[in-house]
Design a protein around this nucleic acid. Structure first.
Lengths: 233, 233
DNA sequence: GGTGGCCTAGTGGCTGAGCCACTTGACCGG
DNA sequence: CCGGTCAAGTGGCTCAGCCACTAGGCCACC
């Protein structure tokens, strides 16, 4: 596998402008309310066209970091142009332990809510996911798809779009840990048992037991993941 | 009152283009992988300059909704251009019950982690917040600022930037419920007692007890809030 | 019948010049 | 001192055009 299939992402010009802009704000020690240089000046000093500067400013505008006043200049909204969005936070691999903590917090509550609110149809969907996982495992697979469906179904049954949204932001990282966890010998069948326990608590409408079962399950996954954890960079 | 103080939010042109673009994708039934019309065609059919179309596309690009390939066209990454960011979700007032659910999920875990990880300095900060709240209440105030500081200190002591980030997205809503809760007669002193219990569990390093105390506290707040809850729109 | 190279139309990336609308602040007359 | 005016500065937007790159058809060659 050579470097032939490298990322090869040619940085767009406005991205470079963005970086220079952030650097400028930091170096010049600008803070909220301060005015940025005029677009024309920025274009000239950065050696790019005004259109490219404009694109960068538009990006900062939609991110709420800057406010452009027609005829009055462009102003900083915060003390920095650096964005620390959840997405970026999640990017860092070393944050995986944090992701698993967050998962425990969220899914425990989701299981509790699901036990209280699930409709019969939603319960059926959860059951189907469980069956699917069982079939996968019986067929020699590790049941990762059934696992995914199960948790998705529980999340849906909890009827909390806010918690669901939080889950979505860490979904990718969870997928990683799921795959890794289920690769451990003997894990799939034990995982199925844990899922079954969660299902039964939700079916019975026992919120407390559902939460406890989910917590136990998630902690098991986290433990496996942490054992194989190797700090990076 | 004339129309003099109209909304006055002059929508930037690229924002209008953005809307038209989203509408087009929906109406034309485009899905992931499909190609958008060429920039020149879009500019012509929307009656704007190519630069404005470009700004809109740049916005979609940084949001990861679209992928522009130099010389190869611009392609949809998902089935829609609509974004449902957490912020937007939180905006809706009717979601407040969900916010309180999320708060319980997050803060319970935060208290647990704080009990395990807090440094002595962080514990001291939590204690100071508690003292501050007591002084406020003794002075006839409702202790809302001390309350805020307390939860902020616990969040910091948990050392989980991801959970902290989630808390930040619902911070504003929590402030509302906090104020409303502490306005109830007799609430401030009872709230102080609950906070003290949380503090002691964290001080003792008892994660389980800290989580339980925090859960109880948050549920009390949620209950008050829900009692005064009046569905809107 | 492939197979590989070439060529061209189409497309995004970017520029430069320019006009308009709006803001700001200094200047001037009362 | 006040109020109006005006010019410079600034963002909003357009137009026309060049370049770099991609995709797909075409053709010569094997």
């Amino acid at each position: 596998m050579s470097e032939a299939l490298r990322p090869m992402v040619k940085s767009r010009l406005y991205e470079q402008v963005l970086e220079r802009l952030r650097a400028h704000v930091t170096e010049a020690g600008l803070s909220a309310g301060d005015r940025l240089p005029a677009e024309r000046d920025l274009a000239a000093s950065l050696g790019v066209s005004r259109a490219s500067v404009k694109q960068a400013i538009v990006v900062l505008e939609v991110q709420g970091l800057v406010e452009a006043r027609h005829g009055g200049g462009t102003y900083l909204v915060r003390d920095t142009l650096d964005v620390e969005p959840v997405e970026q936070l999640v990017e860092r691999r070393k944050r995986l332990p944090e992701v698993l903590e967050a998962r425990e917090a969220l899914e425990t509550k989701l299981a509790e809510l699901a036990a209280e609110r699930r409709t019969d149809a939603e319960l059926e969907t959860i059951r189907e996911a469980l069956d699917f996982m069982r079939d996968e495992i019986d067929g020699g697979d590790n049941g990762v798809e059934g696992d995914r469906r199960f948790h998705a179904a529980v999340t849906a049954a909890a009827h909390s779009s806010l918690l669901a949204e939080f889950m979505k932001t860490i979904a990718e990282q969870i997928t990683e840990s799921r795959t890794e966890s289920l690769r451990q010998p003997g894990r799939p069948s034990r995982s199925l048992a844990q899922h079954t326990a969660i299902y039964e608590a939700i079916a019975a409408g026992d919120a407390k037991k559902a939460a406890a079962a989910m917590r136990k399950h998630v902690r098991t996954v986290a433990k496996v993941r942490l054992l194989t954890w190797v700090p990076e960079d």
